[in-house]
Amino acid sequence: MEYFVQQLINGLALGSIYGLIAIGYTMVYGIIGMINFAHGDIFMVGAFGALIVIVGLGAVGFGGAGVLIILALLAAMLIAAVYGWALERVAYRPLRGSFRLAALISAIGMSIFLQNFVQLSQGARVKPLQPMVEGGFVVMEKGNFAVTLSYLQIIIVVTTVVLMAGFSLLIAKTPIGRTQRACEQDMKMASLLGLDVNRTISLTFVMGAALAAVAGMMFLLYYGVIDFFIGFLVGIKAFTAAVLGGIGSLPGAMLGGLLIGLIETFWSGYFTVEYKDVAAFAILVLVLIFRPTGLLGRPEVEKV
């Protein structure tokens, strides 16, 4: 029981990170119908941005872990947002209206480019970070096994919940969200009503990238090491989460992220750590075979 609770806590924290990234996949798919395979690398760029800010400010003797984390988070979101915007502008917009595969290939190309760019500019070795948030609660104890809920895990889950709530509100209630939903449903008509579709798409990339940067920052704090390649695996798992939840659906991405995080931690907890990725990707295969629209996705309706 105690072991189960501990895995549940770990799984929720990991799942929050996946969920934040999955939103970027699902929103971009919703609006322009392509899988942005470079999104995982935007997450990686965000993590690096956070690391650079933390180390840089730390080096000039900037104290206070809390302030540092918030500054790094904002900086990472900004950096990733710029990358996300540039990515769309350079690699996807010129290909809009051409065949679908073109943008996909371009995305894979941008993914490789970003990885190599960071590898060259930051070095290929893993980058460690001293733990910044330590300690936690002991939730329950039995024998010599204590279930702990670390402060960091609380920060991760709370931040995720707050961001997702704010984000859902933004989509549901504000003119920006309305524009996004309109573009998602009928881009040409939205443009005829005077909505600037290009700007809306750019904004979607920017928001997705900013959320991915939050995830990157959390990942950095949680694991304490990053390298230029983290975006690949984490990105594909977040993509799996988006597909599991139903690609194009926001609540689906959040749910899928949590489920993938839980599946992965429970698998490593009860079976083998080596095969945790296999478990996550087996889910992807099963979902694609048996429920291609995902858990919360709507079946694609033929547009007339």
Binding site: P175, R178, D186, A190, L193, G194
Partner: peptide, 19 residues
């Protein structure tokens, strides 16, 4: 926009001034 409410369809059309 079939998934949006009737009123929202009319609000989208007034997007620029709202923006």
């Amino acid at each position: 926009f079939p998934a949006m409410s009737v009123l929202e369809n009319l609000l989208v059309a007034q997007h620029n001034k709202l923006m």
